[in-house]
Structure formats: structure tokens, C-alpha cells
């Protein structure tokens, strides 16, 4: 999955004098207040952090309330997807006009009808709403499926993602990863050789989604 980055940051946390006897707790509280919110400084959503306090000395700010600045090094896991990136989510609701999914357990994503490629048709199959691919009957999206889709936009305030299933290598991950194994006439060929062949041909994505490559998926960090 794209959009996840690990970065090292030098931060200064300003701490209220009343917290002098529990500095570490105060640092963690401040950093935790950034979690699951979009931060313009970090250009992403903070998902996790690890902190190393660099020195035991802190500068006291002049002023009525003498806050003190603790310098620290932090390793941050950020979610900073850009339009066009491929991200993954779990489908939670399927409707005639939209597919709703949750990405990384905190961000909700919606793919509206106009952003679902025509290959997929809405059907109610045995009482469950499903999108079924016309060209590959096995390719289905229903509640509980994990799908890969392209990011159109993300609302930074409520972390709402608009996604698209128009690009060919998007859809149900289960099917995308299995497809090559089941439908490829040369299933016995090793994955390595397939990779080599694709690299030689120079195309990163085939025009028709007949054989999306499972190895192309970036692993979730």
C-alpha cells in the first residue's frame, strides 16, 4: 500500500511548568494529541511515534507562564497519500451508488458510482449487495472484501477519502492477487521469470487488467 512513510523528525515540545515532575508523560500527551489528525507541518496524518529525548537540558521561555522547550528526536509513521496513489481498505457498505471502505481502521473512504469503472455492475446476490465484474465473473466486491483503489482526494479535516476504481489494476485484492495463479496459462512459470519478462517488456501496468501482478503491491509497513 502506498502513502505510508516513516520519517525522522527533530521536534521541540513546549511543556507547562506544572508538568515539571512528569516531563515524559507531558511529552507523550502532547504527541498523542497529534495522532489521527492531519498535521500541516508533518504533511500527513500521524499514526505512531517513537521518542528519544536528546538532552536533559531544556530552555525556559521568558513570559508569564514559563513553558520550557524539550528537544527530542522522534521517529514518526505518517499516512500521507497523494492523489493517484493506490491504497487499500476494507469494504463496509455497498450501495447502488457507492462503495464505502475503511482505510487503516481510521479513515473512511467512499467510491461513488461515477468512479467505479463500467466493468463492475451492482447486483443483489443471495441478499447481499455485490459489485460483479462483467469480464471476470470471479471478481466481486462485497462487504468485508479488501479492495485496492486509487485516491482522488482526501479531506484533511475529517480524513474522508474519495477514491476511484477506474484504473485497471484496482478492485478486490483477493482476486487481484490470485488472478495470475488461476488464469495464467503458464502457471508453472516461476514468479521470478514473470517479473523479468514484465521488466523486459517495459510496461509497468498492462493496459487490460487481465493479469495484474501480485508482487507489485507494496507491503503495508
Amino acid at each position: 500500500m502506498e502513502g505510508l512513510t516513516v520519517s525522522d523528525a527533530n521536534l521541540t515540545v513546549y511543556i507547562h511548568p506544572s508538568m515539571t515532575n512528569k516531563v515524559r508523560g507531558a511529552i507523550l500527551t502532547q504527541l498523542s494529541s497529534l495522532l489521527f489528525r492531519y498535521s500541516e507541518d508533518l504533511e500527513g496524518v500521524l499514526l505512531a511515534y517513537q521518542v528519544n529525548v536528546r538532552s536533559k537540558v531544556a530552555r525556559i521561555l521568558p513570559g508569564l507562564v514559563p513553558h520550557f522547550g524539550v528537544k527530542l528526536k522522534a521517529t514518526l509513521l505518517l499516512f500521507a497519500p497523494k492523489p493517484g496513489m493506490f491504497i487499500e481498505g476494507k469494504v463496509v457498505k455497498i450501495g447502488r451508488e457507492s462503495i464505502h471502505a475503511i482505510v487503516l481502521g481510521f479513515s473512511s473512504a467512499a467510491i461513488m458510482l461515477g468512479d467505479i469503472r463500467e466493468e463492475f455492475k451492482f447486483q443483489i446476490e443471495k441478499g447481499t449487495e455485490t459489485y460483479i465484474s462483467k469480464s471476470h465473473k470471479g471478481h466481486r466486491i462485497k462487504v468485508g472484501s479488501i479492495i485496492r483503489f486509487a485516491l482522488k482526494s482526501m479531506d484533511e479535516e475529517i480524513l474522508h477519502i474519495s477514491g476511484s476504481l477506474i484504473p485497471p489494476n484496482t478492485g478486490c485484492i483477493h482476486w487481484l492477487s490470485k488472478y495470475g495463479m488461476e488464469h495464467d496459462p503458464h502457471t508453472k512459470r516461476s514468479a521470478k521469470r514473470r517479473l523479468e519478462k514484465e521488466r523486459d517488456s517495459g510496461s509497468s501496468h498492462s493496459a487490460v487488467p487481465r493479469r495484474p501482478h501480485k508482487c507489485r503491491r507494496t507491503r503495508r509497513e
Binding site: 463496509v92 473512511s108 474522508h160
Partner: peptide, 10 residues
């Protein structure tokens, strides 16, 4: 909340 996990914050 089950569809928009961020809803409780709001």
C-alpha cells in the same frame, strides 16, 4: 461510527 471511524471525535 462503523462507517466513519473518525465520527466520535466530531
Amino acid at each position: 461510527t462503523s462507517l466513519v471511524p473518525i465520527a466520535p471525535f466530531k
